[in-house]
């Protein structure tokens, strides 16, 4: 019954080689980052034996590099480690907030942005925030290195675009434009410890006059995957993000939502609230871009 195995490679090459070797031998492998979703699922949903490959000892998965080209965020960086980086929060406050919203302080000590993305839950908090920030997945595998936009990485409930032998090494976020900022909001019934009922991530860039020149809006928990909502972004671009524009974006998000009713909320409720969150997140992003709270 001890047909589980555990390996913790210490370099990218070693990890790629290990995964290739296991694949060759038809051994099922499971990548472990923070484990906060994976361990629960392994004990409740899918108990079948496998090799657990802990990627946390690979330097590239644990580094946070903020430079002129943007941010490279290692896939296994824990939420608490990201939250501690004020320089990152100054530029991507919405993404840091999204990571910070996942679970309790205890979960924050383990759960990673990369893991949250790979888990591919429709309600994953970081996913809309990543999409709003045009984040790109950096993937290592037997065929080498490839990149894929986050909105294309999640392909279904609990399903991602990784091929056998591949794993997510890092996320790359483009450099922020001047006078730009992001925001992420989710709705939960309590103040903590819940899964999002609906969520919205917004990034806006403004010109010197406060007119929105670029925007991305992504919504979560209202469809099988997080959705990029170009109609909501279009409602914001060219405006000063006034009440009417934000309301139009809210309506676009509600229209784009394809929610279900379940134990966490009704279809009607989710559709309505995702609009409220879009409006509120747009206002926060605008105020941040205008140089208010960063």
């Amino acid at each position: 019954m001890d047909s589980f195995a555990f390996q913790a490679p210490t370099s990218l090459d070693a990890a790629v080689a290990l995964l290739a070797e296991q694949r060759q031998a038809s051994v099922r492998t499971q990548i472990l980052a923070g484990g906060t979703d994976m361990i629960v699922q392994m004990r409740s949903v899918d108990r079948a034996p496998r090799m657990i490959v802990d990627i946390k000892r690979i330097p590239e998965t644990r580094s946070i590099q903020l430079g002129e080209d943007g941010l490279i965020l290692g896939s296994a960086v824990a939420g608490a480690e990201l939250s501690a980086r004020d320089d990152v929060a100054a530029i991507y406050p919405g993404l840091v907030e999204a990571a910070d919203l996942i679970g309790s302080t205890q979960i924050q000590g383990r759960a990673s942005v990369g893991g949250n993305l790979c888990n591919a839950s429709p309600a994953g908090d970081t996913i809309p925030a990543l999409i709003a920030n045009s984040a790109i997945c950096q993937i290592a595998g037997p065929g080498g290195w490839r990149e894929l936009a986050v909105e294309d990485f999640v392909v279904g409930v609990g399903r991602n675009a990784l091929e056998p032998g591949e794993f997510l090494v890092a996320l790359r976020l483009p450099a922020a434009q001047p006078r730009s900022a992001d925001a992420y909001l989710r709705f939960i019934p309590r103040t903590e410890m819940d899964i999002a009922v609906a969520s919205a991530g917004v990034r806006v860039a403004l010109d010197e006059n406060g007119v929105c020149t670029a925007a991305r809006v992504a919504i979560g928990a209202v469809a099988v995957t997080a959705l990029l909502v170009p109609e909501a972004a279009e409602a914001l671009i060219g405006t000063r993000l006034d009440d009417a524009a934000c309301a139009a974006a809210a309506a676009a998000s509600s229209a784009a939502a394809r929610p279900i009713s379940d134990k966490r909320g009704t279809e009607t409720y989710r559709r309505q609230v995702v609009g409220v969150l879009t409006r509120r997140a747009a206002v926060i992003a605008r105020d941040r871009a205008l140089g208010g709270q960063a």
């Binding site: 913790a8 484990g35 361990i39 657990i52 302080t105 979960i107 000590g109 383990r110």
Partner: peptide
Amino acid sequence: LVCSCLVFAAE
């Protein structure tokens, strides 16, 4: 601070 139920002992 972590939940020990969500850590593998092998880690």
